[in-house]
Write a protein that binds this DNA or RNA. Structure first.
Lengths: 187, 187
DNA sequence: CTTAAAACCAAACGATTGTTTAGATATAAG
DNA sequence: CTTATATCTAAACAATCGTTTGGTTTTAAG
């Protein structure tokens, strides 16, 4: 006995996510979100609580998109060369629609300071643990490597991904290619 | 025929720089700057024009501090192991007073989006060119390396520094040690 | 000692921030 | 068709943003 929503939450969140991705949390205002999401402020608050709620859902949406990107890697039995492919896939992903925006999670980790919201920190931790586990699983395909080496290399590749995120925003393709080549000389 | 300033611009800018370093550009408000710098808003505007002016000067101040840190490296004839030492020096530098804050320049590069101020972009470009040249000069000490290899490795190490900046903010010392060890297996 | 210039403080500026509310509109159940 | 309820638009909320201004205090030259 009520009116129907004229928007689909998953759809408008994806638009919000892209805005946050381009501009960061602080720079993105409710006014900008209103315009980009195509719905009224009232509807945004009804669906997501507040700005932080929109951001949290945007992070989760980004996480999902990245999991889709990683599904190829998860299913792969190509070992390290599979991870290297993922690095290249990520570069394309980060500039999907327009200019390079880096990784939303990495950008957020770099943006937030001391007094950051705990929910946001949790999403970040979940994300890094997730990526690290995927890398670790792939590395385990090589039975000649012992557990210590695998853990170290998983950490190394995870941090290298963080570097790649920043790099996509500043450096050119040749520099990125060269960076990735060097990174994978050690694993 | 006038009153004397009760503050030294270099001193208050260093305080502003530390605030920007901890919190980023957007999060840092004039109110916070007023408190941290210990002078009135009027004085801030009289000395630095506006918030952007304070930030530009803060970036320059940071640049100077980093050049001091690099002076050891510039004078070094230890080749690559000198650069590796610089990586460790930077980690200490980034958490000099308190918690890890990464590199202010890298943080800024990650924070600013499409419509960033040109002056800020210029400072960032100057900085990366500067660091890259120092790395390049050190690498040239090895006469067995040809020009192409040196340019590639300078780019690689530069991007690795960007990764290290993010990493200091998120990962623990063991992970950082391992990261640096792996990075320097290739140069 | 007077006087002009610069630095100080505090208050206020309009604009924009994130958030809430009031009233009109649409929809589905009874 | 009536009625209850959820969604819509648009206006307003207090708070804070970066910035400016007016008046007071300090200083140093004449």
């Amino acid at each position: 006995m009520a009116r129907k929503k004229e928007y689909i939450e998953e759809e408008v969140i994806e638009k919000a996510m892209n805005l946050f991705w381009r501009n960061g949390y602080q720079t993105t205002s409710m006014q900008m979100l209103e315009k980009e999401m195509g719905i009224n402020k009232f509807s945004i608050y009804a669906s997501f609580g507040n700005k932080n709620g929109v951001f949290i859902e945007s992070l989760k949406c980004y996480n999902q998109k990245l999991n889709q990107l990683m599904s190829k890697l998860k299913a792969s039995s190509n070992g390290i060369s599979g991870i290297k492919e993922y690095f290249y896939d990520f570069i394309e992903f980060s500039k999907e629609t327009e200019i390079a925006k880096g990784c939303l999670i990495t950008n957020t980790a770099n943006e937030i300071g001391e007094g950051a919201d705990q929910k946001i920190k949790d999403v970040l931790t979940n994300f890094t643990d997730n990526v690290r586990n995927v890398f670790s699983d792939i590395l385990k395909q090589d039975k000649t490597k012992n557990r210590d080496v695998i853990e170290h290399q998983a950490d190394y590749l995870l941090i290298a991904m963080f570097g790649l995120s920043s790099a996509t925003r500043i450096f050119n393709q040749t520099q990125l290619d060269n960076y990735i080549d060097n990174i994978f000389k050690n694993v």
